[in-house]
Design a protein around this nucleic acid. Sequence first.
DNA 1: TACTCCCGCCATGTT
DNA 2: AACATGGCGGGAGTA
Length: 425
Amino acid sequence: MDASAATPAPGPSFSGAESSAAAAQPPAEAPQLRVHGAGSGSGVARACRHHAYSRKQKSLGLLCSNFVALYDREDVEVIGLDDAAKRLGVERRRIYDIVNVLESVGILVRRAKNRYTWLGFGGVPAALKELKERALRKMSGSPVLLSMEDSSTANLSDDEDDEKLGDADEDAESEKLSQPVDNTSDKPDAPSCRLRSDHRKEKSLGLLTQNFVKLFLNMEVGTISLDEAARLLLGEGHADSNMRTKVRRLYDIANVLSSLNLIEKTQQADTRKPAFRWLGQAKRKQDNNVMVSVPPSMKAMPNKRAFGTDLTNIDNKRGKLDSAAENKVKLMQGAGNIVKTFERQLVQGKRSDFVYGPFHPAGAKKHETDDQTVKQQERKNIQDWENLAVSFRPQYQNQALNDLFGHYVEAWKSWYVDLTQETAS
DNA sequence: TACTCCCGCCATGTT
DNA sequence: AACATGGCGGGAGTA
């Protein structure tokens, strides 16, 4: 049976039926699970009672918080997906989402089918470190700042997999971060090169999560909007549909990461555009949400959307599309994007929340954008770029990076010039 | 209206 | 074949 079967159908559903009635019920001592709400303890929880269907109560972020609340305890070791789904009153499918993200940041590990081991927040630093290192490693061997391991993914467009089959790009998802215990090595014929199936994994939520995180870890991007992130991860020249899908996934991921306090939602000071800022301090979120114990089956709400009967993906052709436009993503372009983000922050100076990374360029003061002429500003910006170039470069420890940076600077500059010309016209 | 993002169909992978 | 995973995108809630 599939997810739907595990779905606590509206109504009784939770009758226990399961092995241990105990397990079936949110354990009394179990941490309280929360429900989003404007604080008024009353309303929200009950809300569902009255067809006040609230999306927020079902958000992945909240689910994640509850998941963590449920398992972040000493005595927890093994986590069963079914059990989790049951306790949290959601369908299995959602648990996969959560678990994939959590695994990506080292909070748990998949041990076997249906079985995960809780590592806790203590596992995060190491996971992040590993991510960062991996990216750096890759960086030195690839022309793009951000590990392209997956960005390539999409670029290779959805159908011409294999292009990167034997690629030296090894690890990519290969390690999928974990999987230590089972499989991996046991693959019957453990082909040394990637399987076509990897193609699928390349788009996994877990991998996407890691790359999203890397964006922060390596780029020192203070904040980034999901569009930007998607663009960076995808590379230029992608069908809108691709973009939209990626962004959707990023929303999912961002919500989970937010609930872990790894990132936080803010706004790009200038554009007002929603964006996320890296916090890096994974921990249980302590918001003032109402604490209520989650009813065994939260799905009791009448499904406004009448799912299940819906024929959504009719004609769906999963792998399709993308007329595979230009699969060849210009690496420099990728870099250019990264820069754009960075540059925008610099240029617009309004970004009070921009945080430079460890290699904070001494000369890159954030200039306050008052009302002086744009021209002046532009001139100044260009200069800043130069300063940046100087102050940045020495920071790189390895030569490859160093050279690499040179390219970027050039690209940035030319990009910037283009931009200003464009705007001028 | 645009932005968010839940939901579950169904392809793909595993046993 | 049955079951486990999880990509994906429609379209409903929210702002």
